[in-house]
Write a protein that binds this DNA or RNA. Sequence first.
RNA 1: GCACCCAUAGCUCAGCUGGAUAGAGCAACGGUUUUCUAAACCGUCGGUCACUGGUUCGAAUCCAGUUGGGUGUACCA
Length: 588
Amino acid sequence: MDFIIRGALQAVKALYNTELNESDINLQETRKEFEGEATIVTFPLTRYSKKSPEQTGNEIGEYIKENFDQVGGFNVIKGFLNLSFTDSYLLSTFRNEIQNEQFGIFPSVGKKVMVEYSSPNTNKPLHLGHIRNNLLGYSVSEILAASGYDVVKANLVNDRGIHICKSMLAWQKFGKGETPESSGLKGDHLVGKYYVIFDKEYKKQIEELKASGETEEDAKKNAPLIKEAQQMLQKWEAGDEEVINLWKTMNGWVYAGFDITYNKLGVSFDKYYYESNTYLLGKDIIDEGLAKGVFVKKDDNSVWIDLTADGLDEKLVLRGDGTSVYITQDLGTAQLKYNDFKMDQSIYVVGNEQDYHFKVLFLILDKLGKAWAKGMYHLSYGMVDLPSGKMKSREGTVVDADDLIEEMVDTARKRTEELGKVEGFSEEEKKNLYRMIGLGALKYFLLKVEPKKRLLFDPNESIDFQGNTGPFIQYTHARICSVISKGGETDHSFDKIQDLSATERELILALSRYPATVEAAAKEYSPAQIANYSYDLAKLYNKFYHEEPILKAEDEDVRNFRLSLSASTATVIRKSMNLLGIEVPERM
RNA sequence: GCACCCAUAGCUCAGCUGGAUAGAGCAACGGUUUUCUAAACCGUCGGUCACUGGUUCGAAUCCAGUUGGGUGUACCA
C-alpha cells in the first residue's frame, strides 16, 4: 500500500508544484461505511492546492487513478479521498506477498536484545501476577524474534534475602522434616506454606509484645522470630554450612515446582541469573561513579547520587557500612548482563510499582557514560487486582498459578464435553486439546489488554470462551483446518479468478496487514496489538465462511481460491497466536 | 506534600503519528442449521469518551487545571 503515499506525493508535486514528505500525507484505512480501502485526508493539503478539500480530493484522486493501475476508482466526501483498489491488485498482493513462503518473516536486523522476565522470589509459589509477567515476557520475546532480533530470554531469580530465610526458619521450627515427597506437596507450595506460617507466628509474637507494652514498631523489630531470621541471613552470608545446605535444599524444591509451572505455561529461558551470585556486584561501579564524580560520598561513608536536576531525588547507592542496596546490585547486574551478551537492547518486564526504580537505574547508567544504557527499557505492566483489591501472598488472597491453570483446563474440558465435540479423539488428544483451549483462554485474556493497564480478575466469573477470546480464535483455526482437510488434494490454482467479493477483498487486506502489525507490536512491546489483530482476522474469516461457499463453490477456480484464502488465514492465525504463546488445534 | 500511571456502553476492553456518525465482546432481546464445525453468523438495545478550559479547519487523542482511583517516594527487595 506504500504506493498510495508515493502517488499522493507525486500528485501534489504535479498538480500544485509542491514537494512534501511522506509524513505529510495522512493515510488511513477507509471506514467501513464508505466505499474504498484507503483514505487520504485532504484537509492538510488545501494550503498547497489553495482549493476546497473536495476539489483537492478530486484532483488527487483523478491523478492517482490515471497513474496507478492498482487503483480502480475513488470517491470524495468532504476532506476525505477514498481510493478503491482493483481486484487484480488485491489478487496479486495475495499471490505474490501473502502466499509467499516468506510472508511475515523478517530478515535478521543484526541486533541482540535481552528480555528479562519472571524473576520470582523463591519463597512462595507463582500467582496470577507472575503469570501476567511470564506471558508478557515470553510473548514480547517471540514478537521480537519474529521481527528479526536475536533474543536472549533471561530470568533473574531472587533466591536470597530475608524473605527466603523466613520460610527456611519456619520450616526448621515447625516443619518436622516435611518434604515434597513426604507431603505430596509441590515444592514451591510447600515452601510457600512455611512462608505463611512464619508470618502467622511472627504476628502472634508481635501481638504478645504489644500486650506487654511495646509499641507496634518496637514489637516488629524485637519479635524473636524476626531476629532469628536476621541471624539466619547473616549466617547465610557468612557461608554457614548448615544454613547453606538448608537453603539449597529448599530452593531445590522450589525450582522443581517452578519448572512444572513454567512448563505448563509454555515459557522458557535461555539464561538464568541468581541473586545469590549477583548481590555483591556493583561495588566497582560505585568506585567508578565516585571517580567520575557522578556519585558523592557523605561523612558517614554512604554514597549518593543527586538526581534533583532531573526532577528526581537524591538516591542512596551504597550504605554507610559499605553494603549494597537494591540498586547497587542492579547496577552491577546490568553491567554483568552486558558483559555476557553485549546486547543492543535490554528489556525488563517488571511491574509498575518499580517505575521509579528503573527510571533511576537507567539514568544512573547513562550518567556513568554507559553507551548501552540507551537501549534499556522497562516494560512496565499494571497489577492484577481482585474485586476485593490487591493480592497478598502472606494473607493467602492470591490466585495461585497452578490452581488457575488447572481450573482453566477443567473448564475447557467441561465446555467441550457440553458441546460434544470430541468424538473420535483419543484420551491423549482430548487431554491435549483441553490444555490448549484452557491455556489459550487464559493467555489471551491476559495479553489482550495493554500491558500498562491494570487488570481486574474476578475468580467467581470464569474467563469467557466466546466472543473476543482465545478459544474463538482457536476455533476459527480448527474450522479452517476442517474445511481444508475435507477439500482433499488440490493444486489450488485459481488463474481464472478475476473478480472478488467484498468479504474476500476485506480478508486479503486484513491478511496483508500482518507484517506491519508484527512490526508495530515489536516497536511498542505490545502483545495486545497482536491479540487484537488475530481477533479481527478470525472474525472476518467467520463472516467470509458464512457468506461464501468454499467447497461447494460451483466453479473450480473459485473453490481453489477460497481454499487458498482459507489456508493463508489459518497460517496467519497460527503464527500470530504463536506470538502470544498460544497453540491452535486442528480440530476442536 | 511531591512524582509517575490510569479514567471510553451496565461489565471487560479496542480506538495507529489529532480526522468522517467513537468500535468490539460479555450481559439483555430477536433471528439464522435438510448446505463446508452454531465455541459461529446477522440484527436490536446501549455513550455528555470523568469534569472544566485552551490549541486547531477538526480533539476520546495534544496542553493546563480539577475530581476520582492506583503506585511510588526506606541505609527493604
